[in-house]
Design a protein around this nucleic acid. Sequence first.
DNA 1: ATGAAAGCGCTAACAT
DNA 2: ATGTTAGCGCTTTCAT
Lengths: 349, 349
Amino acid sequence: MFESYTIKDIAKALGLSTSTVSRALNGSYEIGAETKKLVLEYAEKINYRPNPIALSLKEQKSHSIGVVVAEVANNYFSQAINGIESIAYNRGYHVIITQTHESYARETANVQHLISRHVDGLLVSLSAETTDLSHYQYLHDKGFPIVFFDRVAPNIETHKVTVNNFQGAFEATEELIRTGYKKIAHLTNSYNLLISKERLNGYKAALEKHGIPFNPEYLKHCNHGGMIQHEVETTIQELLNLDDKPDALFITSDRLTTNCLYILKKLGLRVPEDIAIAGFTNSDVAELFDPPLSVVRQPAFQIGQIATEMLINLIESKRPVTEFVTETLETQLITRASTHKSGKKNNAG
Amino acid sequence: MFESYTIKDIAKALGLSTSTVSRALNGSYEIGAETKKLVLEYAEKINYRPNPIALSLKEQKSHSIGVVVAEVANNYFSQAINGIESIAYNRGYHVIITQTHESYARETANVQHLISRHVDGLLVSLSAETTDLSHYQYLHDKGFPIVFFDRVAPNIETHKVTVNNFQGAFEATEELIRTGYKKIAHLTNSYNLLISKERLNGYKAALEKHGIPFNPEYLKHCNHGGMIQHEVETTIQELLNLDDKPDALFITSDRLTTNCLYILKKLGLRVPEDIAIAGFTNSDVAELFDPPLSVVRQPAFQIGQIATEMLINLIESKRPVTEFVTETLETQLITRASTHKSGKKNNAG
DNA sequence: ATGAAAGCGCTAACAT
DNA sequence: ATGTTAGCGCTTTCAT
């Protein structure tokens, strides 16, 4: 074990009481300047650090926040976590990360675990499988701070941070239309997720604007967000087996997008000559792909930061918060060769 | 705030003392079967969870472990963290992740922060800038549990988990030689890192085996591990400006490898026709690149798991541990088109 | 077999 | 201005 100094050590060394030391350390005014200086200097000298566990027990706060995401090894989430950590660290909180792997069972288990660890608040991005939100509702009703980001809960009134999914999907779809594609299939995450619905609406709106009828056969849900190779493979095969098969794919999640490209190549299809692709992904290397991928990118780092600011404000609020906001950031469309029929266009530089 | 039940609540409800309840909950034998059953049932009913903070204060352990890595948004580290979490979770520890961004100053600040948070042990992968290990030595001498992984400390006698870097580098270099390259430059991380030295040795050994003299001009260090675009760019330019410029690149870190490919393409060089590439990376999408990248892959998830097992064993050891082991795993070479002069070879499937 | 009391490190009334 | 005391939730002697 690694022991460190306590307030008692200081008190003993200086012949004071622990409360005096505590007061000196906390800059209380009801204390002699002399004594204060003495304590402060000694504390500095021995490099005294208050025991955060004792403080937590006293204050009934753990100074930690729980994070629920689908997967750490995912560009979007690792960037978001980066943003979460950056704020949490500065405001004196530490972060406990849990992964759902898109399973509802694991999600509830994680939340339970975090609660039993007495986290002060929760930062949640729902799993693809989740439809029952009652455990969050229960906590929220009891006044427990929760902020949703990205995959937000539709019916729970709390702070949320998300992007303009409608607009992102609209722009990506329109990009495909603009570059000459008309038969655009939409490969998306579980319909359970609000973001899936929003993106679907953006996709439909772009089609409508350009007078292209929506073809229900072109809409496919992969309920595990591209994590199960087999699922994606089957889905793509179904699309390719259609009588009137699509000439472009608009895809809506990180793993799904890269997995699709992988499968199409494996099937020997040329992108974009045989089939074009545009998709949501926060990969840093989409430009290096063959072909370079046209992507909708989300400000994941910033989303993490904002959500964390909101959560800590909620946690530290003196009075119960009843006004909640939904912050909506903009996505960024980056067009590259995967959506350009007429030869490759490489944006490097 | 979100309150939960305490042992006191149970005691009051059942007309017992807190110590009796505690004993019942902890399965002590000096207790009546009746009472025990009563307590257990009631606890179950109200879904009682012991307060981990109170336990920590009592036991003088925080049940948390600190992790020090360069960057979360890095394939290798995010996979390793995944492994770390998986073990830590099961053994009842939570994980506090900190990032150095390859800075020594941030590394020491992080360690200090983790220590003041009373983590029970440390899982460390050194920053590229770090040469002074005295803060780790100090902690280790005091008996504080530390396990190094990947970028290990050469002179500190504790558990370590790493890969056979020599062999990985040897194989990658030999692959380049086998496919017809002779002028192989080596682009590597800071020389401070032991892994850089080991990989350099593997590179040299492969050259030597095939009768190729080592050219010091072909050895370049990027001290920020590819995180600073400008640094990589300058380095590559230096290599290309050589009179006898290289026809292949062996690169040794995740970000460096992908960044290199990016820069080469930006310069209009064809890979592998103008210059071949093989590198260490744990990217899941190296196969989708143009060209598909030949890579040395590390079992990052497993490394994280093993390191965490070791650390927790250290933490929970009853007697001081004096025998330390270094676990060395094997890398995996995956050859693709980026090292095949004679036309592209795509391994999809 | 059970209860009372002390103590882990700290803060905050409540004395003085 | 400083000391004494109680208490956060829990375990663990020490009594009984």
